[in-house]
Design a protein around this nucleic acid. Sequence first.
DNA 1: CCCGGTTACGCTTGTCGTAAAGATT
DNA 2: AATCTTTACGACAAGCGTAACCGGG
Lengths: 296, 296
Amino acid sequence: MDPHLLRTFVAVARLASFSAAARELGYTQSAVSQHIAALEADLRAELLTRRPVAPTHAGARLLEHAGPLLLRLDAARADVLRLAAAPPGRVTLAASPLAVGPGLLAALPATGVTLRVMPPDRVPAALAAGDCDLGLVDGLAAPSDPLRLPDVAPLKITGVGEEALALLLPAGHPFARRAAVRLDDLADARWLDAPDAGLPLTPAHGSARTALRYEGTDLHALCALATAGHGLVLLPRRVAEAAASAGSGAGAAVPLDAPRLVHRTELLAPGNPSGAAAALAARLTAGSPYDHRTEQ
Amino acid sequence: MDPHLLRTFVAVARLASFSAAARELGYTQSAVSQHIAALEADLRAELLTRRPVAPTHAGARLLEHAGPLLLRLDAARADVLRLAAAPPGRVTLAASPLAVGPGLLAALPATGVTLRVMPPDRVPAALAAGDCDLGLVDGLAAPSDPLRLPDVAPLKITGVGEEALALLLPAGHPFARRAAVRLDDLADARWLDAPDAGLPLTPAHGSARTALRYEGTDLHALCALATAGHGLVLLPRRVAEAAASAGSGAGAAVPLDAPRLVHRTELLAPGNPSGAAAALAARLTAGSPYDHRTEQ
DNA sequence: CCCGGTTACGCTTGTCGTAAAGATT
DNA sequence: AATCTTTACGACAAGCGTAACCGGG
């Protein structure tokens, strides 16, 4: 089970073609064919149907394993290489949209930082692959509970902020004048689904119908959709309030009465933060105005 | 970063010797030396100091990655091979000691099952390596929260039981006559540390001093130690009560008043449970008397 | 008959073992 | 001096590419 074979296998499965995979990987079709044959011989199972090329049952299983496996492998490489590489002055920080808040902005030094915003589920992978030096992710969790992140690598995870939640909705919405709403009230609400912006439909939303799916990481657009009545979104309270007032009165932010659910932001750092990265990490964990708001 | 090289590397690091690793792996010392050299050239970093052989900083980092990586690799192999292998009638079930309860015993069919008890942290690895077909682990968690397990492979995880906790202590202990104790009361208690039996010292125990460390998976011995006053143990309530009464009055079980903390048991199954394993899994999740006690 | 995957075969490269050299206690 | 790692080198196998082959649309 050479990683090379595995990589070829996932490429073939993804592209549904031996020749396309060969082109992508810089091999000949023949080599790809041999790779798959070697894998199938090793595992004593047919992994792909040919013509059309599609994973068999066993192949599908292997695919589930292969992704995380290759990711971890890259992570290990990148991690050790990062140790050896001369620590450059620049730091690249990957962050999910809702992790970009006042706490982060206050902690950023004047120079030397690249900020890269991406969907939260891609942050760990970016860190693993060495594309960035630090990661900031956010998500919903119980107070002081860590987020449930895929463990792609031994990462140092630090909570850097927790904030209560609020619902963003149009000013004319029946709930808009309430002092607070409870999750029970929202059992069959219509939610906006915006996984790239860090607002996927979670178990907290119940068996909700999706109002609209938004693909992108732009919070302003998302808030505009919400205040225009295309669906509800659950946001950190400050963000919701800012969006409600910014929209020239078109929106309203209603606090969510769910004491066991908060918006949490976490800092992910590889075990070996280089000098500049370590300094930024320290400022993010300690110096942030988010910091001491750990309860409620 | 060939897995073979990685495997050699961890062996060398573990044994602190090239030659010993070579013997263990069936290579010559020369080959081992070449493996390490290849790794170091690839990662452009010295991974081991020679004489004495010890991991460098970079090597230590790589070691952190290598373990889970190799485990996942074995898991993938085992998983796919299991698919192809003719499903034998026998099922091997790996379980942590406290997961062996009435629920399990009731669900066991008359024949065809091998039960293997091991420390909870070794169950996922056993499943990954294909040494067993199903796993049962237990641990402390918030109600209806899943346990935090290392994700060695894409496993199907199902909660099969939650139970309140109780403290087992000698009959003469100051707490023995209380109706319940709270975690605050136990801030500086002396705890038994028995990680192999599934009772490691957790954050729930505060910054506790360890009374005695017990290595082994035998609950009876552990309960005897507790009732003899060698330290406190936190057990599922039924287990604690049974142990208290079994010890001919030497012990007492005091319910723990911590509504946010329960003893939870989970069933781990690979994605491809074979016929017999699937049947047992179904009986464990559905038929168990544990099953409907999900709250409190 | 064309497109795409497989098989045959030669060549290059890599990997292991033997054996000699080098280093460290 | 003894022990353990490294280096040199030869043998063998693995892996890739070229090219011929085959099977389905």
